[in-house]
Simulated scan of single mutants.
Amino acid sequence: MPPKPVPTKASQTSSKTPSRQRRPQKQQPAPLADRLKRLFTSLCAQVDGGHFTNAIRTCNKILRLDPGDRDALRTKLFLLLQTEQYDTALTLIAEINEQCLFERSYALYRLQREEDSVQLLKEIKSIGKEAEQRGAMHLEAQLSYRQGSYQSSLDIYNELLETADPSSDEHADILTNLPASQSHQDFITTTFMQAMSQLPSSIASTLESAPPPVLSQPASILAPVEELTKKPEAVEFQKKLRTKRVPKGIIPGVSPPPDPERWLKKSERTSYTQGKKRRGAGGGATQGAAVGAESGTVSAAASHGGKTGGKGKGGKKK
């Protein structure tokens, strides 16, 4: 029987294409809603974990996709205040197109602009919400404390303490700030007056009539400072030798100093001299050498091919 023909896999060969002609398909980006949802999920986790710097970057990514997102803008403003970026926070408040009175007042307070902060606090009291007004009271108490109005700060904290929840963080903050205002107020009203009453009348009258002292450095301190600024080269600092680094058996100032070329190779030192080769040194006779009378016999034997007369071992008899 004739052999059966082997069928060719035409369908398989035709379907395959060379690797050079294959082009990777471009992955289509996810919808905008899914990307925003994923970013907000990361943002919540970062804020809860206290990773505020990374949270600000996530807010920036959200605002690139949706520049008008109010949640991202308010969250970024909160994060900027938490990370003490007050100038950037004021710039963002201007871009939000919202009042944000309390946030602006707090940023101005941290930037040592107390007068502008007080003006905004007055606006919050007149038109602000209840939550903003309560925050404004806390800020007003801190401003009063900074400006030295300890009694005003004390009154505000007492008012807030009456309406605060005992289990809240606000209640703990009030209990922390209230003793500080109370101690300063007690010093002004009682402690200082008691100390003044114990002084002699002559000294007390002099202190009461004298102007407030001017903060200035005494001449004994200014003199050496001026000398240092004028003649810095004249001042010499004596360094103490560290005994830990002195080798054992070495006495500083007595033992000779070490060789400065000790780190160089011996061949590179100035004291190095190349040794001469020893000629004619006796180390035993070399091969083929002869000494004394035996030299003639050895040379004659060498001229005849090393054969000598007479009977030798293995030689033939004549």
Rank of each mutant, 00 (worst) to 15 (best):
K129R: 13
R134E: 13
G148Q: 07
K16L: 14
H51L: 03
S183P: 02
T17Q: 11
S126N: 13
M196D: 05
L92V: 10
C100R: 00
L228I: 03
A285M: 12
Q185W: 08
S105R: 03
K313A: 15
S117Q: 04
P29W: 02
K37Y: 07
H51M: 05
Q112I: 07
Q274M: 12
Q217I: 12
A223Q: 08
T75M: 02
G312Y: 01
P218V: 04
G296K: 04
K244D: 11
S42D: 05
L178G: 06
G315M: 00
D155F: 06
L73F: 08
A89E: 00
I96Q: 04
G275L: 12
L264P: 09
A45W: 00
V246I: 08
R74K: 10
E130F: 06
A302M: 00
L241Y: 07
G288I: 00
P2N: 15
T229E: 08
T83S: 01
V118L: 15
S15N: 07
R146L: 15
E236G: 08
T75A: 03
Q25A: 14
A300H: 04
R245C: 11
D66G: 04
E233A: 06
C44N: 12
S15C: 05
P258H: 07
P18H: 05
G315K: 04
G280S: 01
E114P: 10
F78E: 10
L108R: 02
A290M: 09
A164Q: 05
T229I: 11
P224F: 00
P166F: 03
V246N: 04
K307P: 02
V225Q: 13
S126I: 07
Q238F: 13
N158Y: 07
I93P: 02
V47C: 00
D66F: 04
G275W: 03
K125V: 07
D34V: 07
N54S: 12
E130Y: 07
V47W: 03
L228Y: 06
S152L: 10
A136P: 03
F187G: 09
L121Q: 02
S126G: 12
A131R: 09
S295K: 12
D48G: 09
N158V: 10
A293R: 08
K266C: 15
Y145I: 15
P5M: 13
Q274P: 07
F102H: 13
S126H: 11
L32A: 15
A180V: 13
P18M: 06
L108W: 01
Q142N: 14
L65N: 05
D259E: 06
A223F: 06
T58H: 02
K265H: 11
A131E: 14
K276C: 12
R113E: 14
T8I: 15
H171C: 12
H51S: 02
Q133W: 01
Q82G: 06
L120G: 05
G280Y: 00
A195H: 05
R70I: 11
D71A: 09
Q287H: 09
L222I: 02
A72S: 05
F40C: 11
E159P: 00
